[in-house]
């Protein structure tokens, strides 16, 4: 590939992710509003929020690590997007593969964890402790699922995994071939989004939004950007693993939005679990389903 083309791809992929991610945030908020019989925010609301937060004139910082945490939170996802193939663009997906992607996706949260740590606010620290616990909960079924998919495809290269699924049309989709794994993956994905009933680390009424408690202005704005990336990455990863990626932008986006709509619609019907209940739930059902699914694959 020509280097210029590659650079354009590397820049374009995060940008697309951001724009699509903003629409996903909008969809999430609209779905929440519809479920609560409200009208919901206007179309550009996510953009307004981000612009407003970045245009705050005064904001506080608790030190350099606080700043770097936000940079890492955004930058980690920007890097992760280039490992996630989309129709027509593969970026550096072939150089990392899915295990690398999985680990790169942890960088933003850990960068954020550092930043929150320096805020010297116990609410934030509790939030991070809970977020890491949640990660321990949902990553176990997630890696089982990823193991199953990668083993079935015989590769950890996401481009190849998508190609294998697209080879025979609908029938070779991961979700059709490995329905049990697909269900387990959906539950794990829901938990990884950190939405109700799994939003133990935000818990506004309990620990004052946890990690976000000391975030003002562009710091919070950075987290809003990160949320866009997070929604995009999670749903596109699921689409790439189970729904055959996308051949065209239209079906790619359609699948991504539909996949995301499932957990989001469920989310706003539920209150919040306690931490240990989340762990218990995650380590029981999706793990069980995942292991059954892997047993089919092997």
């Amino acid at each position: 590939m020509a280097p210029m083309e590659l650079i354009i791809e590397l820049l374009l992929m995060p940008l697309v992710a951001f724009v699509v991610g903003m629409m996903m945030v909008l969809m999430m908020r609209r779905i929440a509003a519809k479920l609560q019989r409200r009208i919901g925010p206007p179309f550009f609301q996510p953009l307004y929020d981000i612009v407003k937060l970045h245009s705050k004139q005064t904001q506080i910082s608790h030190g350099l690590i606080h700043d770097i945490g936000i940079v890492m939170a955004m930058g980690g996802y920007i890097a992760a997007e280039t490992l996630l193939p989309v129709p027509g663009m593969t970026g550096i997906a072939e150089k990392g593969g899915i295990i690398t992607l999985l680990y790169l996706m942890m960088i933003p949260s850990l960068g954020l964890a550092l930043g929150v740590g320096q805020c010297a606010n116990p609410n934030g620290s509790i939030g991070i402790a809970r977020a890491l616990t949640a990660m321990l909960a949902y990553d176990i079924p997630l890696v089982i699922v990823i193991f199953g998919v990668a083993y079935a495809a015989g590769t950890t290269n996401l481009v190849d995994i998508i190609a294998v699924q697209q080879a025979g049309g609908f029938e070779t989709w991961g979700a059709v071939q490995m329905p049990v794994l697909a269900i387990a993956g959906l539950i794990a994905m829901h938990a990884s989004l950190g939405k109700q009933p799994f939003e133990i680390y935000i818990a506004p009424a309990e620990i004052a939004t946890g990690p976000m408690v000391e975030m003002s202005g562009k710091y919070l704005g950075g987290l809003f950007v990160m949320q866009c990336f997070q929604l995009y990455t999670t749903s596109v990863l699921y689409v790439s693993l189970f729904l055959g990626g996308g051949t065209t932008w239209f079906d790619f986006l359609l699948k991504s939005f539909l996949v995301l709509a499932i957990p989001v619609s469920i989310a706003y019907l539920f209150p919040r679990y306690r931490t240990e209940d989340l762990l218990r739930l995650m380590w029981k059902w999706p793990v069980m389903l995942g292991l059954i699914g892997v047993a089919f694959v092997l």
Partner: peptide, 8 residues
């Protein structure tokens, strides 16, 4: 990754 951090 570092390019991402740079953009961030």
């Amino acid at each position: 990754l570092f390019a991402g951090f740079g953009i961030g």
